[in-house]
Design a protein around this nucleic acid. Structure first.
Length: 281
DNA sequence: CACTTGACCTGTCCGC
DNA sequence: TGCGGACAGGTCAAGT
């Protein structure tokens, strides 16, 4: 999915548009995409939009809706029909095809608000879901961009996986919330740590660097509007351009930013992993 | 128990 | 041009 920065972008975009709107209707076009009874949310007003890890939450009068984009989910908001066309794009790459044709063949759920606007949940791969919250979110580590996230906490949580490669361990959502494959690669690069290293072998200095690397990469991600490999767009259909600025992710064969070597791609834990074999030790 | 693989789906890209 | 296989931002469950 979208990782933390992308979900944060969606959250920030959505709260500007839908807070105070009443959900008039929810159409579920693909049954697996909506878990629970959509009628439980109908007729209710959106009070708050929030994010925890990679999950987006929407507090309504009586229930809370949860959204997970997984690999290819999108949330697109469009005003009353006709509006929004010819809109100028600021701070992102425009994707007119996405914005102009809605719903599209990948639209799974459509929310209609009482002012005539719509929210489309599109999800090509159908891994994502929307559900009515039915209990606390389980087992999520600290929010990396909030106060309580210290290097000591990161170290403590990582050490639950002593023999795992660092990169795999930081992607565990109970270690730290919201880091996925792209930002795990970037964080290891910033920290100058070889992603294959076992957690138990890291020094305190390296835990500190990794902590800094996680925070920096995620902040940059948000700054550039998120990462769009293929699917990610914000609620107005704009792609994120963090990948243009990524240091290693997707840069196989390109020169490293810190030395003359080339970025290398390998597989760790079944996931594509990019790193500089010279800078990252 | 710790870690890896497969499954969930659909689409795209690359090599033959 | 066509076909098969690998791969894609995530997360479970099942398997080793």
């Amino acid at each position: 999915m979208p990782e933390l920065p992308e979900v944060e972008i969606i959250k920030q975009g959505l709260e500007k548009k839908i807070i105070g709107l009443k959900i008039q209707k929810i159409q579920v076009l693909s049954p697996k995409s909506f878990i629970g009874n959509p009628k439980l949310a109908m007729g209710q007003t959106v009070l708050k939009v929030w994010r925890r890890a990679k999950i987006l939450g929407m507090d309504l009068d009586k229930v809370t809706l949860l959204f997970h984009m997984k690999m290819s989910g999108q949330l697109i908001w469009k005003g009353e029909s006709g509006k929004g066309k010819g809109e100028r794009f600021i701070g992102g790459h425009p994707t007119p095809d996405m914005v102009d044709k809605m719903p599209n063949p990948h639209t799974r759920v459509i929310f209609t608000f009482s002012d005539g606007s719509h929210l489309y949940f599109n999800d090509q791969r159908k891994f994502g879901w929307i559900k009515i919250s039915d209990g606390p979110l389980q087992d999520l580590g600290p929010e990396p961009l909030e106060k309580g996230f210290t290097w000591q906490i990161l170290k403590q949580n990582l050490l639950r996986h002593k023999s795992m490669p660092v990169k795999v361990a930081v992607m565990d959502q109970s270690v730290v919330a919201g880091v996925g494959n792209i930002y795990a690669n970037e964080a290891c690069f910033v920290a100058k740590i070889d992603p294959r290293r076992k957690v138990a072998d890291l020094t305190d200095q390296e835990f500190k660097s990794l902590h800094r690397g996680v925070i920096r990469s995620l902040r940059e991600g948000i700054k550039y509007g998120g990462s769009t490999r293929v699917h990610f767009v914000d609620p107005e259909g704009r792609k994120g351009y963090f990948l243009d600025y990524a240091k290693v992710y997707g840069k196989e064969g390109y020169p490293c930013q810190g030395c003359p070597s080339k970025v290398k791609k390998i597989t760790i834990g079944g996931r594509g992993t990019y790193f500089c074999p010279d800078c990252q030790r």
